[in-house]
């Protein structure tokens, strides 16, 4: 009997007595069809109503993050990684959301401030997603913000919340080196959080590997904008 329950599509019912079953099958299909149509309409309406807000939320969130790690630039533009180089536009026919992006920030004087990059790797518990600002001219970081993490509350999540840790990244020299305790002796060092070494190291590793991957592209991006 359990088999009858799992039947998701009425079409799966085997035909036994022809005449009444014909009616029944059509009715089953009809009901499902009507139901599906109603559901579809409801969903489309809801989707239409909420989509702008959702997109706006996402954009705002990203904007806040980019501005934070690029030291509040006047404006920023989105660049796409296309064929091993950065480009302003995506090739036609591809979904821009599926392409890795880098954000280029400009100061009030229309001078480039730096690039913001997003990257994610495994942390202590699960993936850690980080955005950071980077100035290719000085090879310095401008700031770092953890976008997503499930690190241990009270310990690992200090990578998000501990200002002493987060603030070190502004002005740090790439590539970064994590140190255990004490004072930073050079700008490449980042003092890790006591008791949350793995999470701290994950952030450093994410930044280093993102720079290894995206740094050449950023360096190769034309120095001056034409226009």
């Amino acid at each position: 009997m359990t088999g009858a329950e799992g039947q998701s599509g009425g079409a799966a019912v085997p035909a036994a007595p022809p005449a009444p079953d014909e009616v029944k099958t059509s009715r089953l299909l009809g009901t499902l069809g009507v139901g599906g149509a109603v559901a579809g309409v409801l969903l489309v309406i809801a989707f239409g109503l909420t989509l702008p807000t959702i997109e706006a939320n996402k954009a705002r969130e990203l904007e806040v993050a980019v501005k934070e790690v690029l030291k509040a630039p006047a404006r920023y533009e989105t660049l796409y990684v296309v064929g091993g180089a950065l480009a302003r536009k995506v090739p036609d026919g591809t979904d821009p959301k599926k392409i890795e992006r880098v954000f280029l920030g400009y100061g009030t004087d229309n001078q480039r401030v730096g690039f913001a990059m997003v990257s994610a790797e495994a942390g202590f518990q699960d993936l850690v997603k980080v955005i950071f600002g980077y100035d290719p001219k000085t090879k310095q970081l401008l700031g770092m913000k953890v976008l997503e993490s499930k690190e241990t509350p009270g310990l690992g999540d200090k990578i998000e919340k501990d200002q002493a840790f987060v603030s070190q990244f502004a002005g740090a020299q790439a590539p970064l080196v994590g140190i255990k305790t004490g004072k930073r002796s050079n700008p490449r060092e980042v003092v890790m959080i006591t008791g949350a070494t793995i999470s701290s190291k994950a952030v450093i590793r994410i930044i280093n590997s993102a720079l290894k991957r995206l740094g050449p592209l950023v360096d190769a991006y034309p120095q001056e904008d034409k226009g």
Partner: peptide, 19 residues
């Protein structure tokens, strides 16, 4: 927007087919 409905229906039918 049909994601959830598609998933649940696919899972249900899949279980049926597997059975």
């Amino acid at each position: 927007y049909l994601r959830l409905i598609a998933f649940i229906i696919v899972i249900a039918s899949l279980v049926q087919v597997v059975e």
